Computed example of a mutant assay.
Amino acid sequence: MATEAATGGLNEYITHHLTHHVISVGSGFNLDSWLVSLLLGLVFVIWFGLKARKATAGVPSKGQAFVEIIVEFVDGQVKDTFHGDRRSVTPLALTIFMWIVFMNAMDLLPLDLPGWLVHTTAGAETAHHTYWRLVPTADLNTTLGISVSVFFILLGHAISAKGGFGFGKELLTAPFHAHGPAAIALAPVNLFMNIVEWLVKPVSLAMRLFGNMYGGELVFMLIAGMLASSVTLVPGIIANAAWAIFHILIVLLQAFIFMILTVVYIAGAREGH
């Protein structure tokens, strides 16, 4: 990290590490974000799936106990927030929480790990022209993809609870309930406000997660500039360690917030105005 920042300059170093590995699939496609998030999702599914299949009713192993603690924690949060049938909501919340934790935690790996691997196997010149970002949630495409998926899940819950006619009626009559000619006059206003309310939910979910993880990634890159100088090497090491420890809280907190807001939005979608 220090060598690259010193030889290429901090601006070039940051620009390099903010560049995605893009392939052309009709338009630009960030292969690094997609592949890392896919692999981390598979890790979660395989890990929890194996623990579920090997679960015993007796004294659990340490691995099983750890997984049970996570599941019980998530289910407890869902139970406190959503007062309906949790059989589909808790698995969704668990998946969102663990998947985002895994993706956020990639920020704790060394920034130059991909470059070092390429340098070791293919040489320095290849490594210099190789771009690979490790943190999928620092890519707005990833966070928008997750939040848009949540958006359609919310629509499904709203239609399931109220029916297509009931949901459509609510869009036209809430929040300003009126009768007679006033109801007709206020219908466009109600529809506009409801559309804005629904669209704000995925946008806020995506931007909150992206902003925090992108900012955290930038801080690690700026600290790399301190590690590039012998004068600031020791302060840089201290700053890097302190930020990494603090960033663990951000990694967990952002996943928790995304999960809780998803459950809150589902509860709100199933309730009437």
Rank of each mutant, 00 (worst) to 15 (best):
G164S: 06
T120R: 12
I159V: 15
R133L: 06
G156I: 05
K162V: 00
V135I: 14
L155N: 12
T137D: 05
Y131C: 06
A127S: 10
G156W: 07
L134S: 07
G166F: 05
L140T: 07
L140S: 09
E125P: 04
D139C: 08
H129T: 10
A138H: 02
A122K: 14
G156R: 07
G163W: 03
F151V: 07
N141E: 11
A124N: 10
S147N: 05
E125A: 15
F152T: 10
G123N: 06
A124E: 14
S160F: 10
A127H: 02
I153N: 09
S160I: 03
G166T: 08
H129K: 11
V135S: 02
V135C: 06
H157T: 11
N141V: 14
S147C: 07
R133D: 03
T142R: 01
T142D: 03
V135W: 01
V148E: 00
F151H: 14
A122C: 10
L134Q: 10
L144R: 09
G163L: 03
V150A: 10
L140P: 05
I146T: 01
S149K: 04
W132N: 04
G123V: 03
P136Q: 04
T120Y: 12
A127C: 04
A158T: 06
S147R: 00
T130Y: 15
Y131H: 15
E125I: 08
E125K: 13
N141M: 13
I146M: 05
A161Q: 08
